[in-house]
Write a protein that binds this DNA or RNA. Structure first.
Length: 425
RNA sequence: GGAGGAAUGUCCCGAGUGGCAAAGGGGGCGGACUGUAAAUCCGCUGCGAAAGCUUCGUAGGUUCGAGUCCUACUUCCUCCA
């Protein structure tokens, strides 16, 4: 078994060299062998995505970008949708089992997740075109006894118990169900199936997938006598330790209907100073010298680099136009104190304002700035609520049509960053 | 099957004597300072305009009053068989 080989530095293949200099590589099963193979010819590689939510979030972006570089350096990406594996649920990195999703939920999630890939990869039938496959295609076809006889002999429980995902549960005395215990076998079988069907020799994933990936590499060797590789990316956290892709407002979803381009742009714009260079390498296509220039910008000028990051990341996902609109809206709001029609907007019945019975706290709830009126009131008392740029400390202050500005809208802000336009209809 | 232990503010951890809207953290949100950054400091963190209402695994019971006592049930952990 090949352990976490520290990557040999001068890679010959464009693929590994690019991943290396951009910070994608955490562990590789056999860096030299993979480099050799990638330098010689076309490699088919895959990454699996489980369908636990209706959209992927920024945390998955590292994986998507890695497939993008794979394709750009002349190889073939396979996007594996986990329609089958999601039915079981991956215990990796979790200290409690997730609630099981219904098959309908999973199907709906897959349909919704799919959209996110097309901006990043070129799909088609060509030799380096990306393809998308659902592992439900083979996993659901196995009978229980058949599956056990076919793959069971290749896994020892002794060894399975040594994997982090399992060990963690046992050490913390958290239950690990037999169902979840089987997950790693299923993922291993995925690799084998893809190897046999598509000549796929490389599985990539996040560092929490190392155990699962290694199992796949081994099963390919044992069942097919084939040569297979695994590669993981570092676990992404911000410099201050927060998990990537999560913010107060929830996950940073990639689907536009779950997180607007404006909010997406803002997410990247608010990157911590210390992360700018790392993120530019991981989440944009910008050439390294350009990134090196940007990350060295002194003091407040680093903000320019953050805008570039936001432009590039948003542009790649939502398109250039959406990105520049988002940028314009944000610059207007934050740098010039002006309003922009591109700010997030909430519509409220005109009658609500005319009745004079609405309070600013209630409005803040309607606008999604607070989850209850009490919370909105506390926000106001703490000085965090603004109506048309004026701080309102009394959450019970009524809001009427008289508060509409010249454009016929209300500008409501919670804190400095969350701004919403309230428009009567 | 037997013995013991555990479930607390619906984000997490975690104290809790019969008078508790319930200590303390973490996280989160807001404010100050800055640069829409980090670090730091301060405030807030069940619902309600209020009276008040609803919270401590579930369902009953004792009590003027129950997170705290009793009974049953559920789930989990540890040990024995």
């Amino acid at each position: 078994m090949t352990e976490a080989a520290s990557p040999a530095l001068p890679f010959k293949s464009d693929f590994l060299r690019t991943l290396q200099e951009r910070g994608f590589i955490h562990q590789v099963t056999d860096a030299g062998g993979l480099d050799e193979k990638a330098a010689k010819g076309r490699v088919v590689a895959y990454i699996g995505f489980d369908a636990t939510a209706p959209s992927l979030h920024a945390g998955s972006l590292v994986q998507i970008m890695m497939l993008r570089w794979l394709q750009k350096t002349g190889h073939k990406p396979i996007v594996l949708m986990g329609g089958g594996t999601t039915k079981v649920g991956d215990p990796s990195g979790k200290d409690a089992s997730r609630q099981l999703l219904t098959e309908d939920d999973i199907k709906a999630n897959i349909a919704s997740i799919k959209q996110a890939f097309s901006p990043f990869l070129t799909f088609g039938d060509g030799p380096t075109d990306a393809i998308m496959i659902d592992n439900d295609a083979w996993l659901s076809g196995y009978g229980y006894i058949q599956f056990l006889r076919e793959f069971g002999p290749h896994f020892t429980v002794n060894r399975m118990l040594t994997f982090d995902s399992v060990k963690m549960r046992l050490e913390r005395e958290q239950p690990l169900t037999f169902l979840e215990f089987n997950y790693m076998l299923m993922q291993a079988v995925d690799f084998l199936e893809l190897y046999q069907r598509h000549g796929c020799v490389l599985q990539m994933g996040g560092s929490d997938q190392w155990g699962n990936i290694v199992n796949g590499v081994e099963i390919v060797r044992r069942k097919s006598d084939g040569e297979a590789f695994g590669l993981t990316t570092p676990l992404l956290t911000t410099s201050s330790g927060a998990k990537m892709g999560k913010t107060a407002a929830g996950a940073v979803w990639l689907n536009a209907d779950m997180r607007s381009p404006y909010d997406y742009w803002q997410f990247w714009r608010n990157t911590e100073d210390a992360d700018v260079g790392r993120f530019l390498r991981l989440f944009t296509d910008l050439p390294i010298p350009e990134i090196e220039r940007l990350e060295k910008l002194p003091g407040a000028e680093i903000n320019e680099a953050k805008k570039v990051l936001a432009d590039e990341a948003t542009g790649m996902l939502h398109g250039r136009e959406a990105a520049s609109q988002a940028r314009a809206a944000a610059e207007a709001a934050f740098e010039q104190g002006r309003l922009s029609a591109d700010l997030p907007t909430v519509e409220v019945p005109r009658a609500t304002l005319e009745s004079g019975e609405t309070t600013i706290a209630a409005l803040a709830v309607d606008a999604g700035l607070a989850s209850s009126r009490g919370e909105a009131r506390r926000l106001a008392e703490g000085g965090g609520l603004r109506l048309n740029d004026e701080q309102i400390k009394d959450g019970m202050r009524p809001v009427t049509v008289a508060d509409l500005n010249a454009d016929g809208v209300l500008k409501l802000a919670a804190g400095k960053k969350k701004i919403v336009l309230v428009r009567p209809f």
